[in-house]
Write a protein that binds this DNA or RNA. Sequence first.
DNA 1: ACCGGTTTTATTTTT
DNA 2: TAAAACCGGT
Length: 690
Amino acid sequence: MALDLSLLNPQQRKAVVQSEGPVLVLAGAGSGKTRVIAHRVVHLLEQGVAAGAVLAVTFTNKAAAEMKERIVRLAGGASDARRVTVSTFHAFGMRIVREQHQALGLPAKFAVLDAGDQAALVKRLLRDLKVDDKRFDVNRLLGILSRLRTGGAPGHSGDEYELCAAELLPKYQLGLRAMGAVDFDDLLLLPLALFGKDTALLQKYQGRYRYLLVDEYQDTNDAQLALLTQLAGLRRNLCVVGDDDQSIYGWRGAQVRQILKFEGKFPGCAQIFLEQNYRSSGNILAAANAVIARNPGRKPKSLWTDRGRGPRLRLVAAPSDEAEARYVMDEIIRVSYEEKISLREIAVLYRTNAQARPFEEALRLGGVRYRVVGGTSLFDRKEVRDLVAYLRAALNPRDEVALLRIVNVPARGIGDQTVARAQELARARKSTVWDVFAAAPAELSQAAERIADFVALMRKYGARLVGKGFSEAARDLVEEVGLFDEARRGAQSLAAQARKVEAVQSLLRQLIEYEQREEQRAAEDTEDSEPFAAGLSGYLARITLDSREADGDSWDAVTLMTLHGAKGLEWRCVFLCGMEEGLLPHSGRGFDDSGSEPRADGALDLEEERRLCYVGMTRARERLILTRAVERTKRGKRVPRTPSRFLEDIPAELLETIDLRGPLPAAPKEVQQAKARSFFASMNELLGEE
DNA sequence: ACCGGTTTTATTTTT
DNA sequence: TAAAACCGGT
């Protein structure tokens, strides 16, 4: 029953056993850091620490789920390990904001705005300021706004974006509060402010969480570090685990310097280096090391492995992006057929979501099961967002972003004029558009009757969506409002129509499922303080904080995802695709239709791109295939491409180079592939889908 | 206010 | 290329 520490190496053991005081663990890729965290938690429990006193923070919801699973398994299930809190920073913040919503002046069912909603709000504010919203890229403004609030890297002050954002900031925050809504940053900033003001409250939380662990520490921002510092208090039982070489969220305010800051905030903290890599074969590790070594100013690390060298890395040049995808498809079939690597052990990684398309097509054509993680999710679809906005507006009509989105969708005779007048009235009276609608529709001329109907509709469903049976109410709402017809409109092909309707239906299905699960959970008692509220508002908060689709990774399929999504994961076989200048390293708007040369302006964060490449390479355990296209379809046009500069850093002896522009592959290989393909076709038929 | 057709414009990564 | 923004007729 006792935790077996003998399977850990000395450094890992030290990181596990050093339970008290601040600890900084610098864990190279594949050095077993998840393992260390899990062991550390279970070790704490064995020392007699109550499970409820342990808080482990991860970067993604998926990582949190996996970590919890691992802890429970390691603890042997017998103990109360389930009560350990494992969550993302944002989910943790959500819990606090929810528990303290009254002190924060928020309604019980406050909304959480996602990036799209934030953009809508900023656009509205710009128009209020009579600023031409075409002059500014709203997303860039949002980035600056976020950095201003969370205190990330100081921007180049003085330029017009900084000035505009500075002017926007107070209005933005007032707007949020008037709507009774919060954004992602608020989930960190509101607790931070609350704790700063209310010492007794802070002490309560400090008493609740006495042991803190943070994974992916290199990707935290200043607000997160501040929150951690508050919680750690004088006890200072804070253990952070990170790797400066894997810091890939600089654009979100994370700083590599964060690791150094920890040493500053917690002088004399224990420092532990995990340098033995247990994941990748020697060749893969050597190549990845060669790439990352060229980054200046990193904490010197020398990752090593005692595993064999393994096969060489493969470097493939395909004539086009389609050919690249076809090659990957063929190779996946070959590898899974010949080397008996199952599809779930294979990943196709790329820099941008847009690259997924050709791979999806090729894999579908080849009959290979795949799963696209991230990217345009269900909740990025317009029709789904409309429905979500309906639900939100009905639940909380002060949620103006949601209300304005659907007030005239489908068209119901409440047009721009009416809405603009209502907004003006609202501003003059210091109330909200909803209040104007509800209180005095007569003042809004001919549309009065329409508005009254709309108000009645919202009230009706606002009542029905609150308690039990909300999923059924949502379905009725879709029917009554005619959202299916609305979805069908504006899609030219029948297939597109079907997809849209299907998307709406799938959200409704999810709602039903969610409600059933919640009832079940309520039946088996769980007094755990969930981060999320009960009912529909909890569901809505959950989906904006965790938009990954519910369908698990249970079935055997190849994984397609971005490099960012791949952090923390591993596969036996990894395809790292699009190894081209402009793509990896990515250069924002740096390359145009005419050429492939990235513009030599500072917009390209080469160091972070290099780390991204490193992260991708180190995901592979046994086989790593790097691919690039010589020519790529970009925005409908053929564009020539040049190889990524990162490829030059990999020693040639580690590489096996294949040029698909050369002579056709030998016949036997073709035969094998055909065989494999029919094998998969029959497998899929057996599994009974499509 | 609404609709349909035309033109423009965007293209990183995600909690 | 595809989706959003725009425009002008009804």
